[in-house]
Simulated assay, not measured.
Amino acid sequence: MAKIRITQTGSPIRRDKTQRATLVGLGLNKIGRTVEVEGTPDVLGQVRKVQHLLQVEKAA
């Protein structure tokens, strides 16, 4: 699997608690925080759930 870089760009305030939990599961909890993870189907599903709060790009 390819690595992807995920940056949180939106706030989880006034979001459903499942969306907040998804961000924490991805290792994000503050705007501007970035993580690099494997692009597995599980992770891509989490990204799809909160895609309006994230910026996703391929890691080098």
Rank of each mutant, 00 (worst) to 15 (best):
V50Q: 05
V37Y: 05
D16E: 14
P41E: 07
G32W: 00
R20A: 10
L23D: 00
I13A: 10
T40G: 08
K30D: 03
R15M: 11
D16Q: 13
V47Q: 02
I31E: 03
M1D: 14
V43C: 03
H52E: 11
T18E: 14
V35D: 09
L26K: 02
N29G: 12
K3Y: 12
E57G: 12
V37A: 05
Q55A: 12
R5W: 06
A2H: 13
E36D: 15
V50S: 00
M1F: 13
L53E: 00
I13G: 04
T22K: 00
I4M: 09
Q19L: 15
R5G: 02
E57P: 05
G25I: 11
G45Q: 10
P41T: 08
T34E: 11
R48M: 11
E36S: 15
H52T: 08
R14K: 13
G45W: 12
V56Y: 08
A59M: 06
I31N: 01
I31T: 06
I4V: 14
M1W: 10
K30W: 01
G27K: 06
I31H: 04
V24Q: 11
K30F: 01
V47R: 02
T40W: 08
G39K: 13
G39Y: 07
L54G: 06
T18M: 13
V56K: 06
K3P: 04
T40R: 06
Q19T: 07
Q8Y: 02
Q51T: 09
T34G: 04
T9Y: 00
T18R: 15
Q8V: 00
E38G: 09
V37L: 15
V50W: 00
R5L: 09
L28A: 01
E57S: 12
L44I: 10
R33M: 08
V50F: 05
P41H: 06
P41N: 08
G39T: 12
G32H: 04
D42V: 15
D16K: 11
E57W: 05
G25E: 10
R15A: 04
I6H: 04
L54M: 06
I4T: 06
K17E: 13
D42P: 09
T22W: 03
S11G: 04
T18P: 06
P12L: 06
Q46G: 03
A21M: 11
K3I: 10
T40V: 09
T40E: 07
I13W: 07
I4N: 02
K3G: 11
V47F: 05
V43P: 03
M1I: 14
E36H: 10
Q55C: 08
Q19W: 07
S11W: 04
E38N: 14
T18I: 14
Q51L: 14
I13T: 08
D16S: 15
V47T: 03
I31L: 02
A2Y: 12
G32P: 03
A60S: 15
R14M: 13
L23P: 01
Q19M: 15
G10S: 02
Q55V: 10
R33T: 05
